[in-house]
Design a protein around this nucleic acid. Structure first.
Lengths: 388, 388
DNA sequence: GGATTAACTCAATTGAATTGAATTATCAAT
DNA sequence: ATTGATAATTCAATTCAATTGAGTTAATCC
């Protein structure tokens, strides 16, 4: 059950599928909305939308939310996503642990769990993931039979590339078809991605970028990742490894960007200052204390981040750049406030509709929640068509 | 008649339109192909494809090319694009001249023209463009009534941005809705883009990237541009200014990439060496003579280009990077052969299916032909759907 | 020469949209 | 308070473009 991009023709069945997706997407975007308005935005007739909504209500995906009177005419019956209408599992596999969360259709987490790993071999990981999935279903029996799929986040890059074997890869997984493996073990549709892509998608489903269709997300993980959303869909590249912004060369004594901007980088820097900091909370405390070593690192990192933003803006011309990831919220806020935004950029507009750099989700679970968002997005976003 | 991306539902009419596009796309891709094979790749029935092909043949878009026997069974009637079935006009507006070309449905140029400009004011440009369009229709009367649209290439960036007013913009056009203007003047669907995007699309329609759906194109223009093709469509960014790779900072004494890699850069460098070189042919002759100043510039440029390739590969993970533009072919070949490809890249694969850097179209008309390709692509490429 | 295979065609059916007419609920004007 | 305008909704009939199933044709294989 993998997702394959395919040049495919259209027929009645596939049209209906697309229209169901589009209707759900409009409801998600609006929060609550009436049929006539959906019909107008999708260029369908109200009758068609009525039929689809009846179907989706039967399936438990939508619920009525009373009537809303706007000016003259009969007030429109409002519809909203039914939270219990569908669930998505998000799983993040790290070298030392598996994080998992079960999200309802509206993107709310209904379970969260962390499981330590004794190794990263596929059998060990698979055992723990299926176990955590089973426990999630036990906690939320309603989700059984309503699972939309599972998003799996693993350290990229995927396949054999020039940056493989550099510590980011999960040992034992280089030659494995992870999608097929998880799909078989859990009997679910699987989407596989890296942390940055997942986090980027989370912003579209529940975060600060819900109304945007084109934006970039800079993700603080072990390294630095980039998630690109274009027309509401991830740009994953021809082989699924797009967004490895941490590996681009930067000016200065360091070889690559994530040597200066990443969790590993700050840990190394603090270690040189005699501080052994290994988790987000400790980092948060240091920041609250305005620790000199940390502040020095932040200065360098802000400059490098400005460089990264310059590249991303000029290459993609996004609506905005979102900053988030496995970092304390206060530090991300500091970055948003203090990163020097380049003048020489297509995004340096006199009357910009959005800030160029905004705050995204932070904390340990960001990528895990994003993994589930990859699945939810599939249910809620129809590919767009270009009309003339 | 502009192209607006829109979340839109599907109905019978729009399905048929999509299927016609997809059938034409398969014929274009294959050169000649039978109905049953098209039906298989598009997941439609042969009956449906038969009906669509009958329609397209009636419209003059397809022609029969005999039967092809492959093993057992009745040999399939082969179909090919009918060159005279549709035409696209490509227009490139430069500060000093307008270039135009009329392409038939297969991407062959049937007319080419250069018109000098006395100024860049919208009225002047519009007059010359409509005149050159009229002359093209006179030369190819068959094209009258069969025009698919016009692609217009103008110096970006579009709208007000941080890199506007830096010599790349066309004076008098900053506040103008160029698409509406051309559309009204010529009564044609218009696609507006920059030179790099257009050239990138040309490779997909007639060039070296016909079978690829995701690649990047580095374009030597006045500056250095980037065209991104993802899933067979241009990635233009939220405001249409994606691909301004020339403006990203580079290591070294220069501020930005196109200070080192571009036509302006080589001209400036040669000027410092006492050589006043202003056109492609002169540059070609210098290269043939292995001129020392030029060779020195090439060394620096190759390094910088390698830096650009590293960024593009790690951010997009494309199938390949195509190098082309308004440069002598021999020099582009030199770049392809001598640009140092970074080891630290997701594209550095042990068994790469494509070379990482390949040669694209070169010469003065590259972007002009590409402008027309933007229109042809619209007729030949259906957006893809993700099936599970 | 008969069996097999595959492309193609014809006619009937189906799925999902649209169309058009009728109904209902609200606002606005008299 | 009544009436008219407006907009959402529903019902029934229609239309569009696909699929389905049965037959025909033209090649290869044995």
């Amino acid at each position: 059950m993998i997702s394959i991009p395919l040049q495919q023709g259209s027929n009645a069945e596939r049209s209906r599928h697309r229209n169901r997706q589009a209707v759900l997407g409009q409801v998600h975007l609006a929060g609550t909305i009436g049929r006539a308005e959906i019909a107008r935005t999708l260029a369908l007739t109200t009758q068609t939308v009525s039929n689809i909504i009846a179907e989706l209500s039967d399936d438990g995906m939508l619920i009525e939310k009373g009537r809303l009177s706007v000016g003259r005419g009969q007030p429109a019956i409002q519809y909203a996503l039914n939270p219990t209408g569908g669930y998505a599992l998000g799983v993040e596999v790290r070298p030392d642990a598996v994080f998992a969360a079960l999200l309802d259709l509206t993107g709310q987490a209904v379970t969260k769990e962390r499981v330590a790993l004794t190794g990263t071999a596929p059998e060990i990981v698979l055992d723990q993931v299926t176990a955590v999935y089973a426990r999630a279903l036990d906690q939320v029996p309603m989700a059984r039979g309503r699972m939309l799929g599972a998003g799996i986040v693993m350290p990229g890059p995927f396949g054999l590339t020039g940056i493989a074997g550099m510590g980011t890869d999960l040992t034992g997984w280089q030659e494995v078809d992870a999608t097929a493996l998880f799909s078989k073990a859990m009997d679910l549709p699987i989407v596989l991605s890296n942390d940055a892509n997942a986090a980027a998608m989370a912003e579209r489903i529940t975060g600060t970028a819900q109304e945007m269709r084109s934006y970039a997300y800079l993700y603080f993980g072990t390294g630095l990742g980039l998630g690109l959303i274009h027309d509401g869909q991830l740009v994953q590249g021809a082989y699924g490894n797009a967004g490895e912004i941490g590996h681009i060369p930067v000016p200065g004594p360091h070889a690559k960007l994530e040597d200066v901007v990443s969790r590993l980088s700050v840990q190394r820097h603090l270690m040189n200052a005699g501080l052994d900091v290994h988790d987000i909370d400790a980092l948060d405390r240091l920041f609250a204390q305005k620790n000199a070593a940390l502040m020095a690192w932040l200065d360098t990192a802000c400059d490098a981040l400005g460089h990264a933003v310059a590249i991303v803006e000029n290459l993609f011309d996004p609506q905005t750049v979102v900053l988030g990831g496995a970092m304390p919220n206060a530090i991300l806020k500091h970055f948003v406030a203090h990163t020097p935004l380049p003048d020489l950029s297509v995004s340096n507009r006199p009357h910009a509709p959005h800030p160029r750099l905004i705050l995204g989700a932070s904390g340990r679970m960001t990528a895990t929640l994003g993994a589930a968002a990859l699945i939810l997005n599939r249910a809620l976003t129809a590919p767009l068509s270009h009309v003339h």
